[in-house]
Design a protein around this nucleic acid. Structure first.
Length: 666
DNA sequence: TACAAGTAAGTTTTT
DNA sequence: CTTACTTGTA
């Protein structure tokens, strides 16, 4: 065993030392930002209001550390999406050059993935484990449910997605499943016994087959750090400066991971804004940000309150919305940006009129010289933009849509991936199920029986071919072709693009039969998918990426823009987190849509309010809030819509009200 | 017995 | 549009 490494702290920087730095930090940052950036050792909490230069502060701190002689590889930057991490590192590179590229960065999940593959062996984890995304998780649950013979008669059993949600939520909130059901899913209580048994089986099922779902990535990393002191020590020694962005959206396990990783040095910088906590549905707990000083005693706290993004008129509305929050840090954003614009509150007759208004205003903005990339339309739920998407298409306004259904989640992409996943991890029974049921003449029953034998065999390709010989019910030919494909995929050193090409050759005819009505569309998706995976050299890496950071374009977006042409953005508020545009539209700012019908409890309403705050602070220069007064409700037909309760009480002088009218000309 | 096709209900946000 | 259960066919 190697000696413990002791790092000597550098002398604290005195003002004279500033000359040693190439970057003139004091000139480029405001006093609060500077305090955060020049902070060197020990815990630091930065409460950063919307648009207060949070990202800038993080980037300059990375640069500062590197300039002070900290090896870039000793810096760990945990962010909410990998896109955010990459963007930050790119900007850091502009400051200090290539060195910044060596900074370790990514999401908690991708970090956990890497650590577990490298150091998971002592706890019996195979390095080729498969990551289950949400729909894989649901597939497994469904499979186990059928095996257990649950819900076949009398009582209708809850949907797999509901069960998956309950199981995941319990883990993210660190609760017993029983307790979780009692609190958040009382309507499932009549099936509690079965669900608990199912959850137990789900756990062992994953363990036996080297499958990890999203929650497992975090949990098993915590387990590794807690139970294997030498691993924890090694990681803590190699990542001596840890920074976490969007700390208000971490959950209890993530907070624990930070504590464990920082145990040797306490060099942790957490950045966040309690007013922007919008992921409690995923177990995020904004209390983490408040408890930070308790977990890391002596934490220095810096507040960034000056907003550099929005004009005052927009901030006034945002401040007013959040001022009615039940519980909050008092923090009022202010700006030195002048400008007389007041946000619009636009009342439309119906949804389509709302869409036409947005499209028309966008065309006007383009006339005024505003680039499309500077315009975004935000909404609470992905489906809220359907009508608008049609209208934009009709008027040839190019857009991409972020959030909502992703094209990587479509059946045909998952089908192709499943073939590759069984190559990477032959124990991956979920993928086997997918692969086998695609063969004509094989349904769930036959597939399930076959899988156990396949998982146990060393050479699945040959095993499949053997099954082909004994097959009945017309599955012989299909199985034979499948066996040949698998053998080919495994043979020699092949790269992902090659493997995908081979899989497609096998899969395309299968798909044409399975999705006879719309296969041309799916073929185009697969082509797009091929382009995306062109750069991968390792199959494992590609599969992990697809599960952890799938390309965020939605299907609609991919089809709407043929190329990398300039385009505007449609996005859910959640996916708009951390981003900004010159002009922002928020559609469906109507009670019943935002907040939606499912937000009933006080906590839920409070989170919706923070969402409204996040949405309105994305805009730099212009903000348009709109709602239709006639809206369709599936049970009541057309009902009167009213403005979202979060905007209802905003003083009239802060907003410009407008009503849309059909022009008289014919 | 097992697969395939057909029918009737429910729909947020994401790593 | 998806999912859970029902009915029809080999």
């Amino acid at each position: 065993m190697a000696d413990k490494v002791i790092y000597l702290r550098e002398k604290p920087a005195s003002p004279a030392d500033e000359r040693n730095f190439k970057i003139k930090y004091a000139e480029l940052l405001n006093p609060a930002q500077l305090a955060a950036v020049t902070h060197r050792d020990g815990p630091l909490l930065v409460i950063a209001g919307a648009g207060s230069g949070k990202t800038r502060t993080l980037i300059y701190r990375v640069a500062r550390l590197i300039e002070s002689g900290v090896p870039p590889g000793a810096i760990l930057l945990l962010t909410f999406t990998r896109r955010a991490a990459q963007e930050m590192l790119r900007r850091a590179e502009q400051l200090v050059g290539d060195r910044a590229g060596a900074v370790a960065g990514g999401t908690f999940h991708s970090f956990a993935n890497n650590v577990l593959r490298r150091h998971g062996a002592p706890m019996g984890l195979k390095p080729n484990f498969t990551i289950l995304d949400r729909s894989d998780m649901e597939d497994v649950i469904n499979l186990i449910r059928t095996r257990m013979g649950l819900g076949s008669r009398e009582r209708r059993f809850p949907k797999k997605s509901t069960i998956a949600e309950a199981i995941s939520m319990a883990r993210n909130k660190r609760r017993a499943l029983e307790e979780e059901i009692e609190i958040d899913f009382p309507h499932l209580s009549e099936h509690q016994t079965e669900i608990l048994a199912l959850a137990k089986n789900y756990e062992s099922y994953k363990r036996e087959r080297a499958l990890l779902d999203y929650d497992d990535l975090l949990y098993r990393l915590a387990e590794l750090l807690e139970q294997y002191e030498n691993v924890r020590r090694r990681l803590s020694d190699s990542y001596r400066y840890i920074m976490i962005d969007e700390y208000q959206d971490t959950n209890l396990i993530q907070a624990d991971l930070v504590r464990l990783l920082a145990m040797n040095h306490s060099n942790v910088m957490a950045v966040g804004d309690d007013a922007q906590s919008i992921y409690s549905f995923r177990g995020a707990n904004f209390r983490n940000i408040m408890d930070f000083p308790t977990i890391f005693p002596g934490a220095k706290i810096v507040k960034l309150e000056e907003n550099y993004r929005s004009i005052q008129g927009i901030l006034d509305v945002a401040n007013d919305v959040i001022s009615r929050a039940g519980e909050k840090y008092t923090k009022a954003l202010f700006t030195q940006r002048e400008g007389g614009f007041r946000p619009y509150l636009v009342r439309a007759q119906d949804e389509h009129m709302q869409s036409r208004f947005v499209a028309q205003r966008i065309l006007e903005l383009r006339e005024e010289g505003v680039e499309l990339s500077e315009i975004a339309v935000l909404f609470r739920s992905s489906f809220h933009s359907f009508d608008l998407e049609l209208e934009l298409q009709r008027r040839d306004i190019p857009f991409i849509k972020r959030g909502g259904f992703k094209f990587i989640e479509t059946a045909h992409i998952k089908d192709v991936l499943a073939h590759l996943r069984v190559i990477a991890n032959p124990q991956d029974a979920v993928s086997w199920l997918r692969v086998l049921t695609l063969v004509k003449g094989i349904g769930h029953r036959t597939a399930e029986r076959t899988i156990d034998a396949l998982v146990a065999s060393d050479d699945p390709a040959t095993a499949v071919s053997k099954f082909a010989e004994k097959a009945r019910g017309g599955s012989e030919g299909g199985l034979k072709r499948l066996g040949a494909l698998l053998a080919e995929l495994r043979a020699g050193e092949k790269r992902p693009p090659e493997q995908i090409a081979m899989t497609l050759e096998y899969y395309l005819p299968v798909m044409r039969e399975a999705y006879a009505d719309d296969y041309p569309k799916r073929e185009r998706d697969l082509e797009h998918f091929q382009n995306l995976t062109e750069r991968y050299k390792s199959l494992e890496q590609m599969l992990a990426d697809m599960a952890l950071e799938p390309p965020s374009d939605s299907l609609d977006g991919v089809l709407a823009t043929d190329s990398e042409d300039e385009h505007m953005t449609l996005t859910t508020i959640h996916s708009a987190k951390g981003l900004e545009w010159k002009v922002v539209f928020l559609i469906w700012a109507a009670d019943g849509r935002f907040p939606g019908p499912q937000s009933v409890g006080d906590d839920e309403i409070e989170e919706e309010r923070r969402l409204m705050y996040v949405a309105s602070t994305r805009a730099r220069d212009e903000l348009y809030l709109s709602y239709p007064i006639h809206m369709f409700d599936r049970s009541f037909g057309f009902v009167m819509g009213r403005v979202s309760r979060f905007l209802e009480d905003v003083p009239a002088e802060l907003l410009q009200s407008a009503t849309l009218q059909e022009s008289e000309e014919t």
